[in-house]
Write a protein that binds this DNA or RNA. Sequence first.
DNA 1: CTGTTAGCGCATTCAG
DNA 2: CTGAATGCGCTAACAG
Lengths: 343, 343
Amino acid sequence: MGKKTTIYDIAKRLNTTASTVSRALNNSPKISKKTKDLVLETANKMNYQQNKLALALKSGKSNNVGVIVPRIDSNFFASIIKGIEENLYAHGYRVIICQTQNNQNIEVEIINTLLKAQVDGILMSISSINLDTKNSFNRILQKQIPLIFFDRKANIKDVSSVTINDFEAGYMATKHLINQGCKKIAHLSGNILLDIFNNRFLGYKKALEEEGIEFNKAYVLKIRSTVKDGQNAAKQLLKLRNPPNGIFSSSDYAALGAIQEIKANGIKIPGDIKVVGFANEPFTKFMELSISTIDQSPVEMGKIAANVFLQQSNNSENTKIEKNVVLAPKLIIRKSSLKHPNE
Amino acid sequence: MGKKTTIYDIAKRLNTTASTVSRALNNSPKISKKTKDLVLETANKMNYQQNKLALALKSGKSNNVGVIVPRIDSNFFASIIKGIEENLYAHGYRVIICQTQNNQNIEVEIINTLLKAQVDGILMSISSINLDTKNSFNRILQKQIPLIFFDRKANIKDVSSVTINDFEAGYMATKHLINQGCKKIAHLSGNILLDIFNNRFLGYKKALEEEGIEFNKAYVLKIRSTVKDGQNAAKQLLKLRNPPNGIFSSSDYAALGAIQEIKANGIKIPGDIKVVGFANEPFTKFMELSISTIDQSPVEMGKIAANVFLQQSNNSENTKIEKNVVLAPKLIIRKSSLKHPNE
DNA sequence: CTGTTAGCGCATTCAG
DNA sequence: CTGAATGCGCTAACAG
């Protein structure tokens, strides 16, 4: 009952051998229809289920891929995972999810664990970039295991990635604010060591330049992507002698915090200050004062990342094909940044 | 380079045998410190990493558990998974995530796949309940693999579960609406075949009874948990000769849809109609008109489900300990259901 | 078409 | 304390 039936058990019952059973089960051409049917029937009767572990050990292919994200309980990452999972599931792969909680030690540890588990590939959004993590990446590559970055990438030769054009996104968002009449635009940024935040910042800067608006260092704050940090940032900005009339936040959560703080001070949005967030988290759409934001097509991003992985694993020895897919960001204009017709 | 180093490779280099290497690596007591250190050192030098697949095949323990949910991109399920993942990761388990998309065929197929992958346990929130799925559950139990339900459970002997008291939740929500002055309370329900929805409905009914409010069948609508369905439901309710002045929705998304529709009709919330949702999705808190809801402590639910699994897998043969943890729901009162002081 | 043998990588029993 | 042999469940090469 508790014991699992193996192909040997089936063979014994049929007075034949494991190979024959294996062949029958695997639809081998060199087997008679008669024995095949017989095997299939008794296998079914005995409730046989193939042990994929044995197969994995034999073939060197586990059919598992590891997916590493900072956290899973944000719509952005959950949606990416959804895209990856749905695409790879259809191709016979299972997805092992791991969270780093933005902790680099955990990140390194997770990579080791996945490697030991013999995953066939690793898809990840990096949390940190330093010597330890780079070593881990090299370890993956040495083992010839496909490594694909999505969203938060490290710049490593021969490693493919799927990202959005964050520079463009920052540029679009800022340009939009300018078009809505803002001249004094603040930027809530993140960990500048990560490309995504740096590129958004550079896009922001470029838009200012183009419009001949002088860059003001006091308008750029590096914060975490939380409501709390957004509130504090707004507090700080409002204290300035010359507070901004537009805010481009690299995070929807921070944008929300800023909006709350600003309104608590009796300042009107979008009347006095216009705000654009980032990521198109569901709440930005649902709010009374809906929040303008940048959509990153996370589900599609996940699907593409999965596709890149599939391509690479089929390329056998030729893993050295670096493919960098860059998706176009979409500016979603909502109430928080909209100029009043009379303005 | 691409070839992985095994304990045999290490043994060869050291002119010893795999057993010795294995013992050294596993910190066996019967080995001299000298050889142990030597092995450890060269293992390190050769970049050795244990192949967990071989270990799993040998030991019959994969250290993987399967987690099955309808979908991953809802904060509720993502948070449960977060709780499970964090708890089990610390105990050496990896988590394989699967989505059923509320499709029973996929659900059955996923269970088979996980069984073949030799998972050490399955934690799931069921999507459907019928003969096929029941068969699958039995297959799991026959193999002596711990099965734990969370949130959406099936009533099966010997199977543990972690849920919230949905009856109590429905009761609390409805009672609250009554306390806020509502006498005509509608209920947006879901698939009544699932206990969670049925229990919420029963709690709703009980609260009405207790207050001597007559049950009105026209006030109960069975819909899906989407914004769209919530809008349609509200449309239908508003058309009634005697429309409700309170709505208890079994879904935050449906509650949101209803609120949008009601407001679009110029009807005031909470003035004319008060609304309570379910699940405490992030947006309910962030909205201008924040939505009252029921919190289900999803992260804790996931952690507890993981704990129940751990207990069961340690109980060796004694898997027959059914444990049904029922968490207390928390009513979160926000603006959408609040009586005005003058009311 | 079917049976025999070997090996994937590891831990473990039994000898020594 | 260390070495040799065995098996976890499966497939594939080889032999018949």
